[in-house]
Amino acid sequence: MTAVREAHAGVLAGTVGHPRKRRPRYALIGSKAAYLYVAPFFVVFAIFGLYPLLYTGWISLHDVSLLNINKMTWVGFHNYTSLWTNHFFLNALTNTITIGIISAVPQLLMALGIAHLLNYRMKGSIAFRIAMLMPYATSVVATTLIFGELYSRDFGFVNWFLHFFGVEPINWVNAPKWQSQLAVASIVIWRWTGYNALIYLAGMQAIPHELYEAAAIDGANRWQQFRKITIPSLRPTILFTVVVSTIGSMQMFAEPYLFGSGTNGGGNGQYQTLTLYLYQQGWQYNHLGFAAAVAWTMLVVCLVLVIINAMLTNARGRRG
């Protein structure tokens, strides 16, 4: 999750910054040396990045057991055909999407609001920012363990809090689907909202104040300014963070794995995500070939997301 998040934070930094890409002017110096510069990266990248990605596709056409990785039996597309009728896979796919949505939407909305507030001149603004970034500095594993405690059925803080509202103790790790998913999503929301707020804040600070001044002269109130100036200016950032969050949830693993402490993701698979399913198939049930098919399918889903990403950026570029 982190990797992609940060990757995208950076992508924002680069591409979104200039809709009309400035062509780099190359220095007219030793072009042969250039290969030496890129070689270390590409050698490592090819071995550990690109090749495994492609080889996953080849493995997915085989039956391979974790117990005997040297023996690959050709099965053609069998792993794929069984995938699309497999209700556990489809369940994981749906869960991945719904958890992604219920973690991303509130998270990004709140981040936007918080960023707006942080953008006011105030005392202790740095202290607020640091405090809000503390969840981000807490690892996913630690965060999930902490929330596991907060959500404990009999002695947890959340159920104790809810009992004031007449709510019976909820067994969050094995509750009806929406409840369990909400609990898992809350882990993501807690950890990432502050971070996203800072990203939005950075964007807001880059908006020229003249725009607000002009709007104020036209009689726009603060809310109108927020809607008419801040939001449109931040649109590329927002679009990207939405897509980024979606890709992030494609990779969601630690939260569902440690929250329910197991690969089932809840007694009824309420929050078994795709990555969790991949892990269960490959490393618990030893079906590496099948797991490779899951991975490759996830790859396709990701590529679709990338294309959507590109289309959204283009649409925005045209409008700009």
Partner: peptide
């Protein structure tokens, strides 16, 4: 630096930033 393949290699690099690395774990 200007060198043959600059754009292609860079495009390749760029493309993979969006693919979760864990898909190659097997």
């Amino acid at each position: 630096l200007r060198f043959r393949g600059n754009k292609i290699l860079f495009g390749l690099t760029l493309g993979t930033t969006l693919i979760p690395p864990q898909l190659g774990v097997i």
